[in-house]
Every structure is written in C-alpha cells, then in structure tokens.
Amino acid sequence: MSSKKSREIDKIADTIRDLATPDIKPKALIDAVRELHPDASKKDIARAAFLRAILSAEFKPEDTQALHDIASETRNEDSD
C-alpha cells in the first residue's frame, strides 16, 4: 500500500473514530464516512474500520465490537 493510500486510510479511520458509537448501524456509519470521504471505496472504509478496531481495542474495548461489525459488513458487501 502506498504511503498516500495509507495516509488516506488513517484519515478515514480517524473519521470512523469520531463518528462511531456502539449503537450506530453499520450502513449509517458507512454513509456518514462517505459524506466526508466521497472518494473512499468500501474496501478503504473496511480497512480503516479494522485499523480503528485494532487501535481502539486497548483503549475503548466497548467500541471494538461495533467497529469490527462495521468492517465485517463492509467487507462482506464487497464480496457480493
């Protein structure tokens, strides 16, 4: 992954951190992320969500499951 792509994934991950709450539905979060990152692919959002889940696990374990669900759902949509 290029450093430019990596920086974009980091930005998307930060957006996910800011928008994600334990009760948010994956589709709602994906739509909100896309409003701020219109060029982001579902794959980019899934990568960013997995990154955020990994980074959050240590500090905000209650958010980790919601982020994992979002990343998984986005990834599964890509395979459809």
Rank of each mutant, 00 (worst) to 15 (best):
M1W: 09
S2Y: 09
S2L: 10
S3P: 10
K4N: 01
K5S: 08
S6K: 15
R7E: 10
E8R: 13
E8Y: 12
I9A: 02
I9C: 04
I9Y: 03
D10V: 05
K11M: 14
K11E: 15
K11P: 07
A13D: 06
D14F: 06
I16Y: 05
I16M: 05
R17G: 00
D18G: 13
D18Y: 14
L19Q: 08
T21C: 01
T21Y: 00
T21K: 00
T21G: 00
P22D: 00
I24G: 06
I24P: 09
P26F: 01
A28L: 15
A28G: 07
L29A: 00
L29G: 01
I30Y: 11
A32V: 01
A32W: 06
V33C: 11
V33Y: 07
E35Y: 03
E35V: 08
E35Q: 13
L36R: 15
H37T: 02
P38M: 11
P38N: 09
P38Y: 13
P38I: 09
A40C: 06
A40H: 04
S41F: 01
S41A: 00
S41V: 02
S41D: 00
K42R: 14
K42P: 11
K42Y: 13
K43P: 08
D44T: 04
I45V: 10
A46W: 09
R47N: 05
R47D: 14
A48F: 02
A48R: 01
A48V: 02
F50C: 09
F50W: 10
F50G: 06
L51R: 03
L51D: 01
R52G: 04
R52A: 13
R52N: 10
I54L: 12
I54C: 12
S56T: 09
A57K: 11
E58G: 03
E58F: 04
F59Y: 02
K60Y: 11
K60H: 11
K60A: 11
P61K: 09
P61G: 03
P61L: 03
E62H: 07
E62T: 11
E62A: 08
D63H: 04
T64E: 13
Q65A: 14
A66W: 04
L67H: 07
L67R: 00
H68Y: 07
D69A: 08
I70R: 04
A71I: 04
A71N: 03
A71M: 05
S72M: 15
S72G: 12
E73I: 07
N76M: 15
N76F: 15
E77M: 15
S79K: 10
D80P: 14
